[in-house]
Amino acid sequence: MCREVWSAIASPTLETPVLTRLAAALRSDTTAGFLLLGAAFTALVWANSPWSGSYHAIAQADLGLTVAKWASDGLLAIFFFVAGLELKRELVMGDLRDPRKATLPVAAAVGGMIVPAVLYTVINLVGGGDGLRGWAIPTATDIAFALAVLAVVGRSLPPGLRLFLLTLAVVDDLLAIAVIAIFYTSSLHVVALLLSLLPIAVFGFLTQRGVRAWWALLPLAAAAWALMHESGVHATVAGVLLAFTVPVREPAAAERFEHVWRPISSGVAVPVFAFFAAGVTVGGDFGAALLDPVTVGIVVGLVAGKTVGITGATWLVQRFTRAELPAGVSWLDLLGLSVLGGIGFTVSLLIGELAFGAAPEPKVGVLLGSLIAALGATALLRTRDRHHRNSQDARGAVD
């Protein structure tokens, strides 16, 4: 009896048929991508309408932090919590646990970060100015957007291609988190940082003991976030550390957390962040921003750097090791995926904000580069999808 009561307290449920269907829809890669795109498009339209003043007034409204700051520092911590859960599961039980399967996508992720950073740095060195601090902006691949495009245009593509992209994006997120924590921490308050580890440790202890009650875990998560924010380290890092304490080998532990929080991440946290991050006013200084070395470096880094970095690193590792492409995946398929990796929306916008504040150049560069990458990848992957579909039809006819 005591065990049953404890289970009810530790793992309560609050579900209705409507919420269940809504949450299921929000777990879809396609839905998440369209919500992200819709939020960014709405922000662009509003910020360039006669009512643009109201958009900026809402974004800068002071609630302890500005609303826009709450979106990037607060809500985005939920996104990093979900990404952290996925990353830990891949490291402990997934493809990242097997070096033979992980070698190529991990190399692709590293190459897809190094080459864009180098291209951006070269362009800003030649162009002068103080844009070098934004070197990490074009290094990130947006999981939600990239998987959404692949889900829409690649229905007949080999399943291994999606797994390759997912593994690449997970490693990319891990490296991006490290970059944010190391290179974009302006000042460090050691006492607050050490204190933040206490609620994280208690959170981990409770989850290891099977506690799932929101009233027990959310206050600890909020305390960890607040202390991390006070320490000077970007507060979203708290989301990753909290996720890493959740057990993944225990049946339905990490899966349950991800099941609950992914709809909130894809349906609320990421779209709201995109809404306040993407509101660039076209006109006035837009032309100057478009030609700024920061903008050019981001666009070149996302479009050319990601393509060359992902494809080149994969080819080099495959050439000099025994690693092989996933079954059914050709180099043309990988080229399309490499272009798709240039969609660097959520984390790129975040790094741009950390590096340059509210300056328009990072936003223009990320939006333009991601748009070009999305359109180019769509064209390439549609062609490959048609090829694979025709091949499947031909094999079916022969059978």
Rank of each mutant, 00 (worst) to 15 (best):
R3Q: 14
E4C: 09
S7C: 02
V18K: 11
L19P: 00
L22R: 04
A25T: 07
S28K: 00
G33C: 09
F34V: 15
L37Y: 03
L37E: 00
A39D: 04
A39H: 02
A40S: 13
V45D: 06
N48T: 04
N48P: 05
W51S: 09
H56Y: 15
A59Q: 09
K69R: 14
D73M: 03
L76D: 09
R89P: 07
M93S: 15
R100G: 13
T103N: 07
A108L: 05
P116A: 10
Y120N: 05
T121K: 03
V122H: 01
G127N: 08
D130E: 15
G131T: 07
G134L: 02
W135M: 10
A136I: 03
P138L: 13
D142C: 04
I143F: 09
F145L: 14
A146D: 01
A146R: 00
G154D: 11
G160V: 11
V170H: 07
V171D: 00
L175Q: 08
A178C: 09
A178R: 04
I180H: 02
A181D: 06
I182F: 12
F183S: 05
Y184Q: 12
L188I: 12
H189Q: 15
A192E: 12
L193A: 13
L195I: 12
P199N: 09
F205Y: 15
Q208N: 13
V211D: 01
A213P: 01
A222Q: 03
E230L: 15
T236N: 05
A243V: 04
T245R: 01
E250F: 01
V268M: 14
V270G: 08
V270S: 01
P271D: 08
A274M: 03
P293D: 13
V296N: 01
T307Y: 12
F320I: 02
S330V: 04
L337Q: 00
V339R: 04
G344E: 08
I351K: 05
G352E: 07
E353M: 08
E361P: 02
G376V: 11
A379T: 12
R382I: 06
R384W: 07
R384G: 06
N390V: 14
D393I: 13
